[in-house]
Design a protein around this nucleic acid. Sequence first.
DNA 1: TAGTGGTCTAGACCACGGG
DNA 2: CCGTGGTCTAGACCACTAC
Lengths: 246, 246
Amino acid sequence: MSDSPLRIHQIREQLRQQLDAGVFDKDHKLPSERQLSELFAVSRMTLKDALSALEAEGLIYREGRRGWFVAVPRLIYNPLSRSHFHRMVEEQHRRADTEVLSIQSELASPELMRVMELEPLTPIERLTRRRSIDGRAVLLVENCLVSRYFPDILKEDLTQSLTELYRQRYGYRNSRSRFDVQPAAAPASVAKALHLSPGQMVLKIIRVNYNQAGELIDSEFEYWRHDAVCIRIDSQCRVETEAILK
Amino acid sequence: MSDSPLRIHQIREQLRQQLDAGVFDKDHKLPSERQLSELFAVSRMTLKDALSALEAEGLIYREGRRGWFVAVPRLIYNPLSRSHFHRMVEEQHRRADTEVLSIQSELASPELMRVMELEPLTPIERLTRRRSIDGRAVLLVENCLVSRYFPDILKEDLTQSLTELYRQRYGYRNSRSRFDVQPAAAPASVAKALHLSPGQMVLKIIRVNYNQAGELIDSEFEYWRHDAVCIRIDSQCRVETEAILK
DNA sequence: TAGTGGTCTAGACCACGGG
DNA sequence: CCGTGGTCTAGACCACTAC
């Protein structure tokens, strides 16, 4: 043991400078943990701690066993303007993709019954989709639709905005939404789909939507990579929304 | 080395069961890391990883060098209903406290100028307060008020709701708010005030408030312990709010 | 197959907390 | 003061990715 080698905090500062200066990254991938730990003359565990701290700051992110990458600007997401994921992303000059991962008819789980205030044995459709920005998977969405409101919905193109589909195909307008936002650990299935380490933190958004008749027609569980999104709400929109509804 | 000892995931499951069953905790403090690592026959580093995973799930939390504690229900926080922290907390049958940590007159920083769209050299008051629920520090709020709108405000009781103070003392009503919500790393000062480890993750809320004349009068930086809050927004409230304003 | 990050060990010293 | 968590080491094996 020489003096005291670089501490975790000093490594953070040094890496932060390098990142700010844009020194790293042709294709925005950082050198491997082993290379960096040699570079800074610390053990790999210590270096990982430093990288994890920068990850919490949102300066870098981790992708499965693929390595560390420099962060990308967050998507500004206004949940009051109801989905339209693709439009929102394109307005911010990014490229959006949606993949349907699974879809199945089933009965509402106890948790879902609680969230949606459903009767026992209510048939629902459960739709799981993964959404990407500029080719990077950032969001896993699980929609639970009350089947009786959506006959034959499985025959539709489900990569588009569901809101649009509701309106055009079924004549439903979204009159009211309630949503909860909270940090949470990614469930195993979500972690896998988003290339996260098991138990890594995500931003979880639970929302329930009512149609113009006040009927609770569907709910949505969103899991966002924590560094990929900034939720923006402007109470000004309320006045505009109200005006439009009239 | 016997076979393979308990892995991190198995420890998580076991601890989760113990927690759900309410086995631990007289005063809801967990045994020390060293004790637990012996109990599960793993190294302390491994045990820490397991605890960190449970922390991400929101089942336990860490307090400075004091130890690990079982989690407490999240505060349901509706930012559209504008602060009134104490009322909100008491409605949820908890006890609220507010401490003023610092207050000083200064010129707007570059970052603040950007957020609040201020002229250079604008004088502001910067007020830092710590808020607790049932004796646990969960929120650090930093308010930045444009000085010219709030003459002599430093003479007031600043532990109360600022919204109330604005209304009663200055006749300002909040006509519009915009806020951004995103996960972030706690800056050192915030980490210290909330007894967090440096760089730990928090939920950051930046909001700007306009008065009835559409003037941007103050902004607020909130840093919440990530396990202490659930943000709830109900678009239904909008109609009610609008009705009240008329 | 080579290289990556994920996990894990068995120690150690330090800074801070509370009695 | 002692016990706590925070940090750190110098190795190791494994599961997976990318080629």
